[in-house]
Design a protein around this nucleic acid. Structure first.
Length: 331
DNA sequence: TGGATTTGACCCTT
DNA sequence: AAGGGTCAAATCCA
């Protein structure tokens, strides 16, 4: 199957794309030269110099964009630079690819299988694809971060060379709302405990129950941030009272159930997580592309260092830094 | 009793 | 062929 997220497999097409980009960069360079000339003239006249500076800034950005694109294309595109992989447009393409791969799975029971058992009568050939190019967000965390969505575990696998099994979750609303979001959770380190959560797909479900109980951070609402805030007047109080956790009190039982029998160790750490009072929780990207936030806790931001992996995934590694106020990362 | 979890099997990608 | 992602029957649980 042709993957919409693949790079031009036709070498000549790719070469043409590079040629076009080179041409564009050359033109931008010429434009910069003209602007430089204008700038020096304007400096003599001391007249409207700011406008030229802005123009030059724009040209520099254009040049940078061309240069990045060229370098990505020449490197083959797969493990490109962060400049490329944070690109919302490409991310959206990858998401579409994911959705295409996931459609119509239930309709595959055509019954024309040659297999005899009741299970084998369900011919699942071609009914799903490994999500090779899906956009995903990887989060490494010392504890399990509840992202506010209702997940249902649908599988667990022992992974080769991995000490701990990988657990597979899909959105609870996959069937009733067609939400295609999934996530994988795997413990990757014993001491200190470290869990890797890989979010794939995007939530298209309307989680009305939870939405009504959560308060979207108004400071970020214009950016369609996935940031969910639990800020309230007894913020400090909740920090001092581990028994009061907004997640535990607000989420329906399905959320709490999610990790209940996950793994004894994992649950232990999850409980540790749940007993921490964090005002913000990291959510997977929404329909508008990659948007990550750091979590804010008692004036300490559990910030995340971002890096990029193959296939356009985003790595988020927890670290802690002190900030005076909320810090939101969007990209 | 309905929804969630477990787990073996199936199937795709590499 | 191996590894990994998903399905779905069996089982569990509130």
């Amino acid at each position: 199957m042709e993957s919409p997220c693949s790079w031009p497999e036709n070498i000549s097409d790719r070469t043409k794309a590079i040629e076009e980009l080179v041409k564009g960069r050359e033109l931008a360079l010429q434009l910069r030269g003209i602007l430089n000339k204008l700038s020096s003239e304007n400096n003599n006249n001391d007249d409207d110099g700011d406008g030229v500076v802005l123009d030059q800034d724009l040209v520099l950005k254009i040049l940078s964009s061309f240069t990045n694109s060229l370098s990505i294309l020449k490197n083959g595109g797969g493990g490109g630079s962060g400049e490329y992989q944070s690109d919302h447009e490409v991310s959206q393409i990858q998401t579409n690819a994911t959705h295409l791969n996931w459609d119509g799975r239930k309709s595959e029971d055509s019954g024309d299988s040659s297999k005899t058992s009741s299970i084998l009568n369900k011919d699942r050939r071609g009914c799903y694809k490994r999500r090779k190019c899906s956009d995903s967000v990887i989060k490494d965390s010392p504890n399990l971060v509840d992202d506010g969505h209702a997940w249902r575990k649908y599988g667990q696998k022992d992974i080769q060379n991995a000490k701990y099994p990988r657990n597979y979750f899909r959105c609870t609303h996959k069937h009733d709302q067609g939400c295609l979001a999934t996530k994988q959770v795997q413990r990757i380190q014993e001491d200190p405990p470290l869990y890797r959560t890989t979010y794939s797909g995007r939530h298209t479900c309307k989680n009305l129950l939870k939405a009504s109980q959560l308060f979207i951070d108004s400071r970020d609402i214009h950016h369609n941030s996935p940031m969910i805030s639990f800020c309230d007047d007894d913020h400090n109080q909740s920090n001092n009272n581990n028994n009061h956790n907004p997640f535990l009190s607000s989420f329906p039982s399905s959320i709490k159930q999610e990790y209940k029998d996950f793994d004894h160790d994992i649950m232990t750490h999850n409980n540790n997580y749940q007993s921490e009072s964090s005002d913000h929780y990291i959510l997977p990207p929404d329909d508008h592309g990659h948007q990550l936030t750091s979590t804010y806790d008692s004036g300490v931001v559990n910030s995340s260092s971002l890096s990029y992996t193959d296939m356009g995934t985003v790595m988020v590694e927890d670290s802690v830094a002190n900030f005076d106020d909320d810090v939101l990362f969007h990209f």
